[in-house]
């Protein structure tokens, strides 16, 4: 009996599932930091797709794209969290329902 290796389709399904969980979190939670974490999980799922396809198409481009996605998400984390701190200082809340004005 021969056991086949794990097919790429399963990795893609897992990545789609993680992405969907991230979408549900971003759509339904009201705490801005948890929305932010959901977005990070979505980026992570996309990275998994990139690396999977890079592996199974024997190309290096997906790995490099995953690398750049990580750089961008690190930058996003720094600026986004600074914005949350600023928001909390002036509004005393980071509930996304109560943040609806550009100017205050």
């Amino acid at each position: 009996m021969v056991i086949p290796p794990v097919p790429p389709v399963l990795y893609l399904i897992l990545s789609g599932t993680l992405f969907t969980i991230g979408v549900i979190g971003a759509l339904t939670r009201r705490n801005a930091i948890i929305v932010f974490m959901s977005i990070e999980m979505m980026l992570n799922a996309v990275n998994l797709t990139f690396v999977t396809m890079s592996r199974f198409l024997q190309s290096m481009d997906g790995v490099l794209f995953a690398f750049f996605v990580m750089a961008v998400s690190a930058a996003e984390a720094a600026v986004g969290l600074a914005i949350f701190v600023l928001l909390y200082r002036s509004r005393e809340t980071i509930n996304v329902d109560e943040i609806h004005m550009l100017k205050w």
Binding site: L14, F36, E40, N44, V63, A74
Partner: peptide, 26 residues
């Protein structure tokens, strides 16, 4: 999973940048 896909570089970067830096910031 990255290690399982035989991609140790991205796996290490994942642990350092995501599980280390970003979650620490959060």
């Amino acid at each position: 999973l990255y290690v399982l896909l035989r991609n140790p570089f991205i796996a290490i970067i994942q642990v350092i940048v995501y599980a280390g830096a970003i979650v620490m910031l959060i």
